[in-house]
Design a protein around this nucleic acid. Structure first.
Lengths: 212, 212
DNA sequence: CCGGATCCGTAACGATACTG
DNA sequence: CAGTATCGTTACGGATCCGG
């Protein structure tokens, strides 16, 4: 237990004792897209101190919310346990709730295409059957992630899909955000497109990030 | 914006800038059961400093998550706005997620019957159509709240229902928690029961708080 | 370079006292 | 009742350093 616990016999208070501290839910956000190494987490959480990240990871691992996993021989990473996966509902709720609060990307705030993609994914999970089923791969500047829509559920993971996607899109960050906000469509965007272009267009039409 | 903002163009980060600080989601928990005055909030949030509560309320009101409402002539209270109601989904998610983490009520941690009732309510909202429809009033020691189940949704409010309930239960805190954990049933509990006893029994059977 | 540990200044929190 | 003011303590942020 934390030294600063709420000391309430309430499951919300107990939950917040574990995941209510600063940065913790953002760590869950990053891990929700798949296991990550320490340094990858640092770059996905700009502003966090290395000491604080280490402390958070230790606490979350002790609570069996995350665990160390072996991705490749010699390298270790952190991934959500099944218990930790239970927090993705909370994260997606807050993502949806916070969508109205988004301001135009200011220059002194960090931007990641994957965060915008999580926004779409969270929204699709609450409005099933409007996005076309399929697997879609994205390469946005140095970010790579893929989205899988099936059975009214939407799943987002970092990296490249383990099997050939139905469509793939490669473009820079600015172009991706223009697509996400609906300021441009695929026809007026400088992008490399592979596979089923029609389904990709339909996917991008289903959700628009607020433009301003 | 907070002086300690995440400064990320991500709707989760923006949401946590507003409601991610200590105590904030617990304030939402208290207001989710209806408007409350400053002192009522203090007693529902044991351990919070009056200054901190005042600061949080000011911030939440500025963000239009809560607002001052007039309950009775002369007295003012704080209530969730429609925007703030959007956070109850998140709160209920965390309540459900934290249920496994509940420990046996320790003596140095505060206990409220309403918190246990919120646990039942959150669970019912995720498992519709298992609890019997109706309005149920509870008086547990000095706490009073009522539960309304209808259309697969469950609603919990502090105070007494504005119309006669289908059933009413009056008992002390220990007895209520014994019922909630299933350690006793209505027949073996010292309680005052009014109205439809069968439906009340059925309601209490639908969810059991973990006993240990 | 990765994965941290250590140290220190600053900001947030906790407790209590005080006020209209 | 509904807060404000003050102050000691804790947590966070940023930097530096260190072993593999």
């Amino acid at each position: 237990m934390n030294t600063r616990s709420y000391r309430q016999n309430c499951s919300l208070a107990r939950a917040l004792d574990l995941v209510g501290e600063r940065w913790t839910l953002l760590i869950i956000r990053e891990l929700a897209r798949g296991p990550k190494r320490f340094t990858d987490l640092e770059s996905g959480l700009p502003g966090i101190g290395a000491n604080l990240l280490a402390a958070r990871l230790k606490r979350l691992a002790a609570a069996a919310i995350i665990e160390r996993v072996q991705t490749a021989p010699g390298t270790s990473a952190y991934g959500l346990t099944q218990h930790g996966e239970g927090l993705t509902a909370t994260v997606q709720d807050l993502i949806v709730w916070g969508t109205d609060l988004l301001e135009p990307p200011s220059h002194d705030a960090e931007t990641r295409a994957a965060w915008a993609a999580m926004n779409m994914q969270a929204w699709m999970n609450r409005s099933p059957d409007v996005a076309p089923d399929g697997t879609y791969a994205f390469a946005v500047a140095d970010e790579a992630f893929w989205l899988r829509v099936a059975d009214g559920r939407s799943q987002l993971r970092d990296g490249v899909p383990p099997y050939p996607p139905d469509a793939a899109l490669m473009l820079d960050r600015e172009a991706f955000l223009s697509l996400a906000t609906g300021q441009r469509d695929l026809g007026h965007t400088e992008a490399e497109i592979h596979g089923d272009r029609r389904r990709l267009e339909k996917l991008l039409e289903t959700f628009r990030l607020p433009a301003s």
